[in-house]
Each structure stands twice: as structure tokens, then as C-alpha cells.
């Protein structure tokens, strides 16, 4: 939050991405793109991060760097360990070994709420909005530095009213941006799945993070909304926020990502600019197994890949709890026949 270069997000709707000071078009990597390559200006540097569940090595990343002020897509087949990697980076899970820094600060062993306060805010693959709070209350909950959140000040409204009004203003402009302004007073439980995704993303922005990590932000979002979501993400970059997101839709990745990192079986198998990565043999292997004949550079190749991906239903919607934290409080969207919640 002390980044001197940042401009607050919020009403910056009109920001033209092309004139943004963060639209640095120089090369991202220091050398040639290769798994684990160095970046000119990394915001996250992770080393030797490993996490296994029993015999399964869910994450086994030797070295990876996330470029600052860029949109980085983390892709990989279902079960590749993307969500687990998110959990590790944000302190929601503890690795067996490894270290990583965020803006030069060592984050290993830091608890999740501290990570968030340092400016690294994430969303969840299984959307987590508070259904029993109104949309605007959800938004305010995302705000940082609210003195009224301390117990002894909470009793005295005059100590926090001013900040509350500020937060409400920010929230309202974000809601307007995310086309949720009409739902302001509704309980979040009444929102559609896509609207929840939007709300969760908007809420994550309330704290004005320097890095947002979005786990499958597009999954389940109404196609009509996808385009505006993509614009939001590009807008974020324009306002100086670094974005790291997990996505399965190759169109989306090609459309907005500056950099793509591919994971498979816990490892980083490829990275580079979207176009190059799509032609990378390792990526094709990871996604298609034996189908080596597909050229992802050509439109038919991409279409073929997308066919394969859409057949794998889970890779689009995500398995219900793959890599997610124990969702004790989750209301699954579809009631399980035995009313049993995980």
C-alpha cells in the first residue's frame, strides 16, 4: 500500500489501457522464456515450494517468478496443483518446504490475514461471498484500515464513521464498475453464481491490493459478463495492480494475459508469452497427453484443445473441493442428496 506509483482503482473506469504508465511493453523475462526463468521486475519469487498429500506431490515448484504490473495466467490441467499453489503462497496451506517473497518480503510462515494485509489478496475457486450479508456489507468487509473493526473502538461510532463513509464510496464505485450497483442492498445469497464471482473480485479490490490472485474468475460466469470481467482485469493492470489468475479458457488467456505459466503434476512445465506457450510441446503434452499432432498456433489446434478441455467438465467448473480449504462453511450450490456438507 506504500507503492508510490499506484493510482487508486475505483472510479478510474475511463483509464485507457494504452496510455497507462504501467503499460510497459518491454520484454518480461530477462533471458529467453523457459520454465523458472528470471523476470526483469518480479513481484513474487518462489523457490523450492513443495507440498504433498500422502504420496501425491501436489506442488513441486523449483523456481518461479511472477512479473510485476503484468497479467499472468496460471494454466494447467485439472489437478495440476494451481489452487494448492495459491493456497501455499497466501498462507492458507503450509508447504513441506520452500520459501517465497512478495515484493522482497519473505512470506514463508506468514499467516493468511497478514499476507492479505501486505497487499496480496486472493479469491477462491469456490466462490466465498457472505450470503447472509448484503452486497454492500460484503464490500465494506473487504475494506482495510477500518478502525471500527477493533473491539474497543467499535462501541463508539464517531471513531469509525468517517472511514465507513470512505469505504462505502469506494464500494459503490466498484459495484458500479462491476454492474452490481442495483444489487447493493440484496443479500449476497440471492446473487447468481457469476454475480458472486464478480462480487468476490470486487471485494478483493476493496483493500487496494498490489497483487490480486484470482482462482478461476471466469468459471460459471455468464458469457455475456465475461467480456466486461476481462475489461476489469485489464483495467486493474492499468491502475498498477499486478494480476495472477488461474484460467482454463484459452481464448481468455490469449486475450488478456501478458505471460502464461503452465503447471502440470505440480511442476512448472512451461512459461512464456501466450502465443509461444500455446505452441510449446510441453503444454500440449500436459493437456493432451498422446495427441501430439495438434498445433496450438493454428486456430484449428486451439479449437481442438478447447474441445478436449470442454469434454473434461471438471477442468471448466473445477472439482468441488479440489485443493480447496476444508469448506465447512460452504453451501454447495447444488445440494448434495444427503444434505451432508463437507
Amino acid at each position: 500500500m506504500s507503492d508510490p506509483q499506484r493510482i487508486p482503482p475505483g472510479p478510474a473506469t475511463g483509464q485507457d489501457p494504452d496510455t497507462s504508465p504501467f503499460n510497459d511493453t518491454g520484454p518480461i523475462a530477462v533471458g529467453p522464456a523457459a520454465p523458472g526463468c528470471k523476470k526483469r521486475d518480479p513481484i513474487i519469487i518462489a523457490d523450492g515450494v513443495r507440498r504433498s498429500f500422502g504420496a501425491l506431490k501436489a506442488v513441486d515448484v523449483d523456481h518461479v517468478e511472477i512479473p510485476r504490473h503484468k497479467i499472468t495466467a496460471l494454466i494447467g490441467p485439472n489437478g495440476a496443483g494451481k489452487t494448492t499453489f495459491f493456497n501455499l503462497l497466501t498462507g492458507f496451506d503450509t508447504p513441506d518446504s520452500g520459501s517465497w517473497t512478495f515484493d522482497g518480503k519473505n512470506l514463508a510462515g506468514i499467516r493468511p490475514h497478514r499476507v492479505a494485509r501486505l497487499g496480496m489478496v486472493r479469491t477462491f475457486q469456490l466462490t466465498k461471498v457472505m450470503g447472509k450479508l448484503t452486497v454492500i456489507e460484503n464490500m465494506r468487509l473487504g475494506g482495510a484500515d477500518q478502525p471500527g473493526e477493533a473491539l474497543w473502538r467499535a462501541m463508539f461510532p464517531w471513531l469509525w464513521r468517517e472511514r465507513e463513509a470512505e469505504l462505502t464510496r469506494t464500494a459503490d464505485s466498484l459495484l458500479a464498475m462491476f454492474k452490481l450497483a442495483e444489487k447493493r442492498e440484496d443479500y449476497a445469497a440471492s446473487l447468481s453464481g457469476g454475480q458472486r464471482k464478480l462480487l468476490e473480485m470486487a471485494r478483493a479490490l476493496m483493500a487496494e491490493p498490489r497483487l490480486v490472485m484470482l482462482d478461476e474468475p471466469m468459471a460459471g460466469v455468464n458469457p455475456a459478463l465475461t467480456q466486461s470481467l476481462l475489461d476489469h482485469i485489464k483495467n486493474l493492470k492499468a491502475t498498477g495492480t499486478t494480476v495472477l489468475f488461474v484460467e482454463h479458457d484459452m481464448h481468455v488467456v490469449r486475450h488478456i494475459a501478458d505471460w502464461v505459466i503452465v503447471m502440470a503434476e505440480g511442476r512448472v512445465v512451461a512459461e512464456g508469452p501466450p502465443k509461444e506457450v500455446m505452441q510449446d510441446q510441453a503444454v500440449i503434452d500436459a493437456y493432451l497427453g498422446a495427441h501430439h499432432d495438434v498445433d496450438l498456433g493454428a486456430p484449428e489446434g486451439v479449437a481442438r484443445l478447447e474441445d478436449v478441455l470442454s469434454e473434461d467438465a471438471e477442468s471448466v467448473v473445477g472439482t468441488e473441493d479440489a485443493g480447496e480449504l476444508l469448506a465447512v462453511h460452504d453451501e454447495p450450490d447444488t445440494q448434495d442428496p444427503h444434505g451432508r456438507q463437507p
Partner: peptide, 9 residues
Amino acid sequence: PLRRRGSAL
């Protein structure tokens, strides 16, 4: 019957 109703735990 409670399970059928999907009662929470």
C-alpha cells in the same frame, strides 16, 4: 427425513 431436507449439521 432431516437428511432428506438437507438440514445442516
